[in-house]
Amino acid sequence: MPSSSTNDPREGTLLENRYTVRRRIARGGSATVYEGIDERLDRPVALKIMHPHLADDSSFVRRAQREAKSAARLQHPNVVSVLDQGHTREGELYLVLEYVSGPTLREIIAREAPLSPRRTLDLLIPVLRGLGQAHRIGLIHRDVKPENVLLTEDGQVKVADFGLMRAVDEHTASATVLGTVGYAAPELVGDGPVDQRSDVYAVGIMAYEMLTGSRPYTGTALQVVNAHVSRDVPAPSGVVPGVPPALDELVLRATARDASRRPVDAAALLDLALAIRRSLPAPQDPPSLDTALTQPLSALDGDAARAGSAGEAPTEVFGTTTRHGDEMATEAFDARNRLGSASDSGTLGDGAPGGEAATEAPGTADRATPD
């Protein structure tokens, strides 16, 4: 591991006779993240230590502990696991998280964007699987962004930073204080109710950025917030000609300003992404887009019907029940838009996804990011 040059007084200390703090990875508005070692089990971990001022608020500490327990229930291969929680000698709350050493989606975007349709979907699909499981058990991330999407060394995609988001939200009384306004749904910066569709919006912004290399809105934080509330996200193909209409439509549905027009949760958006992914040309085919991808999503219905006649069981994408691994019930979203498809095989195809560095240690993306 690279040696630390931060001169952080916590480095080298031992938390509760178990976790050695090795080096600081990143520092955010509510926490600092360190690489650590679980001395009892002799394994690397990430240690997310809340800032001292938060320890003085007993109501925050209670809420944070509840949120951490809820996040620990979320066990999924595409989510960074919460392993433990405790308190430092000074009383700050800390979380022990699965350690991930690999790039963040931010780094992948910086290096590769604009990404191809296949690469974009190979990165988004596991993100949606992890979020879908969270939504299924009633958890909302609230801060989905490329910095919070990490890759393991073998290319597995994991969503980081579940837990404490609601508690910090309530402590600051503003989601925009802790989140990144570039990915914030209109209801996060306004008065609307926050639910799973807020995460869906953020995924749509990430998809736009992956396909084009930039976010749809730039400027000051206030200008970006106003744009989210008052303007529709444009189609990616307006920036990068050749982006398939199906991916344009995925982005536009996910980022609808009216939350009722978005897919109801990540599971519904996952079904849409999988249907588009299956319509892509095989890797060995010429790079030209096949006919299915040059038509609106509604045109995929015909392909679905043909797949059904070939013995593949159709799946109701926005209907009452969908299947991908385990069964995830989803509410009716749009009776007019149904995509028949074979059941999800659980594989990502040929692309291995990737991610963005937090605030420090360039080139080291082994992290659960700070809020």
Rank of each mutant, 00 (worst) to 15 (best):
A26K: 07
R27S: 12
R27H: 14
G28H: 08
G28Q: 00
G29S: 14
G29N: 11
S30L: 01
A31H: 00
T32I: 14
T32F: 08
Y34V: 04
G36P: 05
G36H: 04
I37Y: 05
E39W: 06
E39R: 10
E39T: 15
R40C: 13
R40Y: 13
R40F: 15
L41E: 10
L41I: 10
D42F: 09
R43T: 12
V45A: 04
V45W: 06
A46V: 07
A46N: 11
L47Q: 04
L47N: 07
I49E: 07
M50G: 03
H51S: 13
H51L: 15
P52D: 00
P52F: 00
H53G: 02
A55I: 05
A55H: 08
D56H: 12
D57Y: 11
D57H: 13
D57N: 15
S58K: 10
S58D: 05
S58V: 06
F60T: 12
F60R: 05
R62Q: 14
Q65G: 04
Q65R: 06
R66Q: 13
R66Y: 09
E67D: 15
A68K: 02
A68Q: 01
A68H: 02
K69I: 07
K69F: 09
S70C: 04
A71N: 06
A71L: 00
A72M: 14
A72N: 06
L74G: 04
Q75V: 13
N78E: 04
V80T: 01
S81D: 10
S81N: 02
V82T: 09
L83A: 11
D84V: 03
D84I: 06
Q85D: 01
Q85R: 11
Q85Y: 07
G86F: 05
G86W: 08
H87V: 09
T88E: 08
T88V: 06
T88W: 10
